[in-house]
């Protein structure tokens, strides 16, 4: 090409055209803090079946929550599909969400939804101990996560302290047992020199490869990792008896008060609670369906068989205090 500079106005014009082409009025805009890898196919299904045009903005849950707060009444978003309840609680607190009808909300157990009907949990994830059955038998695993401070666990544990779910668990520990007990537990486990990982998946892989015996993770990473590499020896242990180590957290959805596609938005919320979507969570992401009548993955126990601690998920919003504690104890 003689003059590459000729390309410049062409590209600029094309971009302008592209900019004008987007942003039609009749679409449902979804802000999704859950990644395209996880929920993209499900959202496509919704669009195909209902004929609703959707536009999805994927991003980090916390950053999208901050974006919704900064956009205020001008937010283009109609619904917010969040990875955790804390972000939904934060935007609900600033009146960004609209109340959902109680017959819809009541499909999900009270523990997994807003007390004032502003958001609903759509799928659940449990904290578990991932263990390698070749290295340790299930009987030897503790009744309470608090027992992991015992010196017999020295050099056998793995965790991912930067992971959001781990931090939510520590927050629950603080809420249920107080900051002092939480500090003692963190210091005790640290004495046992747990191997540190950057995320949950490498923890599960290390357990499967026998590098460590037990890892503190979310339950769905175990089936995910085994699906990719069936040779790995790793299983879930759900801590029973209402122990804080068995915390069940949710991903959820809320409808924005500023939405001008309220009908479609409502339809989307209903869709996420439908059998079809709930089955998708069970089969594709290995999470727990929250609506009665849909079974979890056959290799997992039913949600009703779990014995999670009684803690209000909306109260798990003091992450700052948890981070301070993790930094104070030298874990972060």
């Amino acid at each position: 090409m003689k003059h590459p500079a000729v390309l410049v106005p062409v590209v600029l014009l094309a971009s302008l055209a592209a900019a004008c082409g987007s942003g039609g009025g009749d679409t449902l805009t979804i802000y999704s803090g859950r990644s395209k890898e996880l929920v993209g196919p499900l959202l496509e299904q919704f669009a195909d079946e209902t004929g609703v045009d959707i536009e999805v903005r994927y991003g980090d849950t916390a950053e999208l929550a901050a974006t919704i707060l900064e956009e205020g009444d001008n937010s283009p978003a109609d619904v917010f599909f969040a990875q955790d309840a804390g972000a939904l609680g934060a935007i609900a607190k600033e009146d960004r969400l609209t109340e959902l009808p109680s017959d819809l909300v009541e499909q999900v157990a009270p523990a997994f939804r807003s007390t004032v009907n502003l958001w609903i949990g759509t799928s659940g994830r449990a904290r578990t101990l991932a263990f390698n059955p070749d290295l340790i038998s299930e009987d030897e695993l503790p009744d309470s996560i608090l027992d992991l401070t015992d010196p017999k666990w020295k050099g056998k544990l793995g965790w991912a302290p930067t992971n959001g779910s781990f931090q939510a668990f520590v927050t629950a520990l603080r809420v249920l047992k107080g900051d002092d007990e939480a500090r003692r537990w963190l210091e005790g486990v640290k004495e046992n020199q747990p191997e540190e990982f950057s995320a949950n998946i490498p923890v599960v892989q290390a357990v499967g490869e026998g590098e460590i015996s037990v890892g503190l993770v979310n339950h769905y990473y175990v089936p995910q990792v085994v699906k990719e590499n069936p040779k790995l020896k790793v299983r879930n242990y759900f801590i029973p008896g209402g122990d804080v180590g068995g915390l069940v957290n949710v991903a959820g959805v809320g409808q924005l008060a500023s939405s001008n596609s309220a009908g479609d938005a409502r339809q989307f919320v209903e869709f996420l609670l439908s059998d079809e979507a709930q089955r998708y969570f069970a089969e594709e992401t290995f999470e727990f369906p929250l609506v009665e009548g849909v079974a979890a993955d056959p290799d997992l126990p039913a949600l009703t068989e779990l014995e999670p601690p009684a803690v209000d998920l909306a109260k798990l919003d003091d992450l700052r205090g948890t981070l301070d504690l993790l930094e104070d104890t030298g874990i972060l």
């Binding site: 987007s22 942003g23 990644s35 395209k36 890898e37 995320a199």
Partner: peptide
């Protein structure tokens, strides 16, 4: 970060694709 929040909705780039995959640790 700016691309995720400010690009036209649905406008994916290589950077957002990498992020989407690695956010869930689907490094492959």
């Amino acid at each position: 970060p700016a691309t995720l929040l400010l690009a036209p909705t649905g406008f994916n780039t290589l950077a957002t694709e990498i992020w989407g995959a690695s956010a869930e640790a689907f490094f492959a």
